[in-house]
């Protein structure tokens, strides 16, 4: 017991618990070594780690290959109800916010008419725009977010709605493409 007291509070002077002291020393040693390793030793910087991780992603992308959207292959999918259903789901989830639930055009253009701002309205054109986007017009690239099958499905779904004349159409934008 220490010989002082404050407003009735007395103090013992027990030794510091060993486990506590060891913890304290341990964290100090760890801190020192950690700093040495990462700031002046061989430890990688955050950006070096990022580069390594990005290389893995690039490799995965390369393995996936660049899908070339062929008109014929996409044509074949038009008959598949399953693909159209999947396409509808993707469209409602990702595209409807700007193009409208009925593809009538809201922020982006009407996708059911014969007028096209980018490309000729062919299946392969649409698939490319879905992938790459038209960034300056606000159409985001979906390449990193949609799988190849989803891109195909949503493309086919869009084309299947051609000529559906939805209510509240945004009206024609771009050039009229006569034959398709």
């Amino acid at each position: 017991m220490e010989d002082h007291e404050y407003d009735g509070i007395q103090e013992l002077d027990n030794p510091l618990p060993n486990w506590w002291l060891l913890t304290f020393l341990g964290t100090i040693i760890f801190a020192y070594l950690y700093y040495l390793h990462y700031e002046s030793g061989s430890g990688p910087t955050i950006n070096q780690e990022l580069k390594a991780d990005l290389a893995v992603i690039e490799a995965a992308k390369a393995k996936r290959g660049t899908k070339s959207d062929s008109e014929e292959e996409l044509q074949k999918l038009l008959a598949s109800a399953a693909v159209l259903n999947e396409g509808k789901a993707v469209f409602q989830g990702k595209c409807a916010a700007c193009h409208g639930a009925d593809l009538q055009g809201v922020i982006g253009p009407d996708l059911t008419d014969d007028y096209w701002l980018h490309g000729q309205g062919k299946l392969a054109d649409i698939a490319t725009i879905v992938r790459k986007g038209v960034v300056e017009k606000g159409m985001p690239p979906w390449d990193g977010q949609l799988k190849d099958a989803e891109v195909s499905a949503v493309t086919v779904y869009i084309v299947s709605k051609r000529g559906s004349h939805p209510a509240n159409s945004k009206g024609p934008q771009g050039e009229k493409i006569v034959s398709n």
Partner: peptide
């Protein structure tokens, strides 16, 4: 450090730890 020893009416465990 004030209210715990007051409420429990016990001495503080370790001055040097403080």
């Amino acid at each position: 450090y004030y209210y715990l020893p007051k409420a429990a009416n016990r001495p503080v465990y370790s001055y040097r730890l403080s």
